[in-house]
Amino acid sequence: MSARKIPHILKLSAQEQKEFVNSFDVVMCDCDGVMWMIAAPLAGSGEAVNALKADGKQVLFVTNNSMRSDDEYVKLFGGIGVKDFQTNDIIHPIKSMLYYIKKHNIKEPVFSLCSPPSTRMLRKVGVDVRTLDTTEEITPNNLGRITEPEARMGAVLYDIKLDLTYPQIAAATRYLADKDCQFIAGGTDWLLPMTKDLTVPGFCDILDTLKRFTGREPIIISKPAVLLGEILKDIYKLADPKRCLFVGDSLTHDVRFGLNCGYQTLLVLSGSTPIEEMWQAKAEDQPHFYADSMADFIELYANISKSA
């Protein structure tokens, strides 16, 4: 058990609650398990974001889920009542990949192990994306032909892809045999929290298989990698990490990412992490604060208003 007691934001004194909200200017929120479950809503999350914005906070969203298009995210945030949401307010692995591709001037085609919306997003902005899609029955006799490299690739892009197939994985290993082909990965989460009662495996094990087979270490551009923190710092011109609060539902990805970047961290218990896991974690892996859900910010601001 950890010796460090983590304060719940609603159990802070009135003065401590004021000090807490005055200690940050930027709030970065994970989405799945924080704003909503992947396939179900979470009550009060949109109202909480609006309360933070009304207090002058810049609210950004940092998710490892690239399976949705910008239009879908606009609809989702609008559906939970978030005011003035802009597509530039959210970063996910495909946007980070695009940043990396542009910064490192990758001109060759890229091979995508990413979701169809992700692939369309990359193509829309001019990236030459190649995929492997076949309706042919796969046999030992035709696997080699079907997965034959069609051209030299500048990178293999790996992310969450619910319709990922074995031929696509095999083709990626053949492209990665070229040591000049970069290996860029997003989806590293262990779990995908679909609803409050349903959690399914994430895609980290498949990534581990690719790493082990190819002997290649991917460039991780998603949480909890520090590289993502550098990308966020550049895109949003973040001056002082200590004035940023990162809100997430995962100790291994959200809290670890925030700690890696020097942010303040807040764990919400609405997603993948039960409270027992938080208390049992090592002190260096624990958040600075915790809450039951984003909706606690509504009550927090009500408390502050009463004590004013």
Rank of each mutant, 00 (worst) to 15 (best):
I38P: 03
A39L: 14
A40Y: 15
P41H: 12
L42C: 08
G44A: 09
G44Q: 09
E47I: 09
V49A: 03
N50F: 03
N50T: 06
L52G: 02
A54F: 05
D55Q: 12
D55P: 06
K57E: 07
K57G: 14
Q58G: 11
Q58M: 14
V59C: 05
L60V: 10
F61I: 15
T63I: 07
T63V: 13
S66N: 11
R68P: 01
S69Y: 00
S69W: 04
E72A: 15
E72L: 12
Y73M: 09
V74T: 11
V74R: 13
K75G: 04
G79R: 02
D84M: 10
N88H: 06
I90N: 01
H92M: 03
K95T: 02
M97D: 02
M97A: 08
Y99F: 13
Y100M: 13
Y100L: 15
I101A: 02
I106L: 13
K107T: 04
E108N: 12
P109E: 09
V110N: 02
F111R: 05
F111H: 11
L113C: 12
L113M: 15
L113A: 08
P117T: 14
T119G: 01
T119K: 01
R120F: 11
R120G: 12
V125T: 11
V125G: 10
V125K: 13
V129A: 00
V129T: 02
V129F: 00
R130I: 01
R130W: 00
T134M: 14
E137N: 12
I138T: 05
I138D: 01
L143K: 15
G144E: 09
G144C: 07
T147S: 05
E148I: 05
E148V: 04
E150F: 06
A151N: 11
M153P: 02
L157V: 07
L157R: 02
D159Y: 01
I160Q: 04
I160Y: 13
K161G: 02
L164M: 15
